[in-house]
Nucleic acid binder design. Structure first.
Lengths: 229, 229
DNA sequence: CGAGCGATTGAAAAGACTCAACCACCGTGG
DNA sequence: CCACGGTGGTTGAGTCTTTTCAATCGCTCG
């Protein structure tokens, strides 16, 4: 559980940094980064930014999880990505020169640092390793989204749910998947009622088990099979 | 129509270059580019690369159009993007360090130049303007795909078809949309039969008109309205 | 002239959505 | 301590969209 008073992580000691794009920083660079970041505590369901806003910097998740989502016509959210601790959120918009096309909000209480656009771009300019890391990240994400689109277009909701649960299991690692039914439906791309019914089926097939809203994966291979064809 | 013998465009005279990521090149850079590219004629439906291949360079479309697509479980194509003349294809994979996750093939006879990975990366390394252009391009594409995913998840096939036709109208500019029904269905993300039925509806509503396989847009505003809600 | 492929139509079935109601839990205020 | 209201989760029934499968058509190519 997150200690709400512990707002000021130093980058030197940040465990999340080691797995992040800043992981390759030397001591000097890390100090520099530390001097330029501000750190904040976020409550659950608190927005980092919304679509249409002008990007002012990037967010570095020290602890917590964040959903990235777009909104359809009637304002219905479509979750595109869920970011874990160690991930940097919002750097795509640093390069596009456009307002945010998507929004971001915390899924749980979180500790998140902020680095201004200017500082971030300076870092990127002066650090080829970071730059390459970012380009690699952007490219991989692009490939992931191609798969996402293909799944949406060609898989049934049942298949997509199985696929999504496996993906979430990786994101939530040792924790159990902990999302509202609505968020889960908005990730899978279906109606909440349909999601609940399919989840019930999965329970009856001993693929998963629920503890209130939390979801425990019982049979990864089984889910993989469902997601498969 | 494309002159099949005209295979060796020089970058200096390439009209497509001016609108491309190489558009900002000075004379010296353009000459350099010209020395390092090879140029080929492609027939219709010819692959540039397929998923799983190791990326060896990028493709620069001098004339023609190219589909980028992923394949679902049963090998069914999902078209992700259609590239026009002036666009550079395959540069995402230059940075990811992974094999292609998607495939590319010509939609019509095309003139396409090739620049090796080494040469391309050298260009990117030494040219900050090009680099920024690429990062901007990657970021925009990422945002486009978020919209794509949202449309897939939340819009009906009828809405998506209207949306796709408008998009294709921009891509085909002065030409009429000229795609097989199957390719069109694989872009919209539906079955070929469904696509044909909806196209028939659109014809009866005087939104479009067909000339054999070619599709002429009659009422952009009408289509926009259909795509809307 | 026949083979074959892309385009089209028809009919039936399946999948998913909508709407409406109900339940369960939780924090609040009386 | 308990009734109350609200939110999120769940269930049921009916409807509509979309898919699937099968068949036909039209055209091009050898």
């Amino acid at each position: 559980m997150l200690d709400k008073s512990y707002k000021h992580v130093t980058c030197e000691n940040c465990l999340s940094r080691k797995n992040s794009l800043f992981g390759s920083f030397c001591n000097e660079e890390t100090e520099d980064l530390n001097d330029h970041k501000t750190c904040s505590y976020y409550k659950k369901n608190q927005p980092l930014f919304i679509e249409g806003n002008t990007p002012r910097g990037v967010f570095c998740i020290n602890e917590g999880r964040v959903k990235i989502f777009a909104r359809g016509e009637e304002g219905k959210e479509q979750i595109i990505h869920i970011s874990n601790s160690g991930e940097i959120v919002g750097f795509r918009a640093m390069f596009s020169g456009e307002p945010y096309k998507v929004a971001a909000a915390t899924l749980e209480e979180s500790n998140i640092c902020f680095i201004s656009k200017e500082d971030f771009l300076n870092l990127v300019d002066s650090n080829p390793t970071l730059r390459n890391g970012i380009m690699r990240e952007l490219s991989k994400e692009l490939a992931d989204r191609a798969t996402f689109i293909t799944n949406m277009a060609q898989k049934s909701v049942r298949e997509r749910l199985a696929f999504t649960l496996l993906m979430l299991d990786d994101i939530y690692k040792d924790d159990m998947i902990n999302l509202s039914r609505e968020d889960l439906a908005n990730f899978v791309g279906t109606a909440t009622e349909t999601l609940i019914r399919l989840l019930k089926d999965f329970k009856e097939e001993d693929l998963v088990q629920t503890h209130a809203r939390k979801i425990e994966i019982l049979d990864r291979d089984g889910l993989l099979k469902v997601a498969g064809a």
